[in-house]
């Protein structure tokens, strides 16, 4: 079923509000990961507000789809999405990274409902997603599993071990996505340790691979729909994105990996995001 114009508009509006919340909470907190939260905002919006099945009042609901944030440093994105989806009060966002908060610097499944598993050490999420997908297969259950990876994260060897496992066990209930923003901490991915050609690699590992503009909501939801129809192998959606997407202040700037906005940058960004409402 094709997505309607109105649905798309609602999703774009949602992504904009998610970016606004991310920036506010990060500015308020003074530490955290800006660039990689913003680059994946459209992807997470499509997953949580279009594709995935879940019930925020019953985080442990058996029939839910699972989302694993393998690039755990994008916690501000996950928290914003979970708050807007109704897992917890929006007001709790301001406790980010404070002693006693459920909103840890990296997602902690011990304390925050909606977080499937604690992450933060890169390269481990896809293996966990495989395990969940295998469990659903054993149960003959229709649940789907989604995992979001960073492009720098693809440098971890465990990712490629998991890539083999997923294809070997024909995990067609698994869909992974790469936030292919071209940057990591020490610079451009291509300069630090090249990972291209990403699509060819996943194809060679036995995956169905879709390559989309990770800021084009229609393309993202179409790819997510398509992934559901692929049988006998897992699907990887390579999302071409811009790190820091949402404001000129942060876009494509490597230093905004782990730096938070100043008050002035926040004001500029708010203006840009607000003006983009009816785009």
């Amino acid at each position: 079923m094709a997505v309607t114009e109105q649905q798309l508009q609602t999703l774009k509006d949602r992504a904009r509000r998610i970016r606004i919340d991310i920036l506010k909470m990060l500015t308020d907190c003074g530490s955290g990961h800006t660039g990689g939260s913003l680059s994946a905002a459209d992807i997470a919006t499509a997953l949580y507000f279009y594709k995935m099945k879940y019930d925020p009042r019953k985080p442990g609901w058996k029939e839910r789809d699972n989302f694993i944030l393998s690039k755990g440093h994008a916690a501000p994105l996950l928290y914003t999405v979970l708050a807007q989806a109704g897992y917890f009060e929006h007001a709790e966002l301001c406790t980010l990274r404070k002693i006693g908060s459920r909103l840890q610097g990296h997602p902690d499944s011990k304390c925050l409902p909606g977080v499937e598993i604690s992450t933060g050490s890169l390269g481990q999420g896809l293996s966990v997603a495989n395990g969940l997908a295998l469990a659903h297969k054993l149960d003959k259950a229709p649940n789907r599993v989604y995992a979001l990876l960073g492009d720098g994260e693809l440098q971890e060897g465990q990712i490629w071990e998991a890539a083999m496992t997923a294809a070997h066990y024909k995990l067609d209930n698994l869909c992974a996505l790469v936030d292919n923003n071209g940057l990591q901490i020490d610079g451009p991915v291509a300069k630090v340790m090249g990972v291209e050609p990403i699509t060819d690699k996943w194809r060679a590992f036995g995956w169905e691979v879709l390559d989309v503009d990770g800021h084009d909501m229609e393309k993202i939801v179409t790819a997510l729909d398509k992934a559901e129809t692929i049988k006998g192998k897992p699907t990887m959606i390579v999302c071409r994105t811009v790190k820091g997407k949402g404001s000129k202040c942060f876009e494509g700037k490597v230093e905004f990996h782990g730096t938070t906005p100043t008050k002035e940058e926040l004001a500029t960004a708010m203006k840009e995001l607000e003006e983009g409402v009816c785009k």
Partner: peptide
């Protein structure tokens, strides 16, 4: 491993680029 700014090995990398190896997140 992609943390040279934080671990401060970036100082060595700047002074001796030929003897510095960034292995990536690996």
């Amino acid at each position: 491993a992609d943390l040279s700014g934080s671990t401060k090995t970036a100082k060595f990398a700047k002074a001796f680029p030929d003897r510095f190896f960034n292995i990536g997140i690996a």
